[in-house]
Design a protein around this nucleic acid. Structure first.
Length: 131
DNA sequence: ATTCTGACA
DNA sequence: TGTCAGGA
């Protein structure tokens, strides 16, 4: 019931998302313009992506690798959204999409924690991935 | 060093 | 989509 805040919490900068998804910054920003993702912004106007954003980008990459164009991807993903909303409104949300192994996340997140941890000590992130 | 927006030889 | 400029 609070997993939502976790998956929507703004966590990673562009560089990390690029490595995690294997997509270029250009592509990632392009998909945002097409409303496939809506990352938050830091005070310095830097994009901050959530775990949901990562999952969404990986779905986009899958469809892309399948030869589907932006129009098709939008149709598929935006349809998923309307369905997900109807489910949430009905109390029954089920979206188990863990595309990463804990090791992968820990490795890529360690650097984030070194920085974020400096300001946000013993944060939600640390408890989630290192305990 | 990293990311951002706008633009296109 | 890549890539470069000019800022933050």
């Amino acid at each position: 019931m609070s997993s939502h805040i976790r998956r929507t919490m703004p966590l990673f900068p562009m560089g990390t998302v690029m490595k995690l998804t294997d997509l270029s910054a250009r592509q990632i920003r392009y998909y945002e313009q097409h409303h496939l993702i809506t990352p938050d912004r830091s005070e310095g106007n830097r994009r901050l992506y959530s775990l949901n954003d990562i999952d969404r980008l990986l779905e986009v990459k899958d469809l892309l690798d399948q030869g589907i164009n932006m129009a098709g991807i939008k149709k598929i993903l935006l349809k998923d959204d309307s369905q997900a909303e109807k489910l949430e409104t009905k109390e029954s949300s089920a979206k188990p999409k863990k595309e990463f192994t804990d090791e992968e996340l820990r490795k890529l997140l360690r650097k984030e924690l070194i920085n974020a941890g400096r300001f946000n000590r013993s944060s939600e992130v640390e408890r989630r991935f290192f305990h």
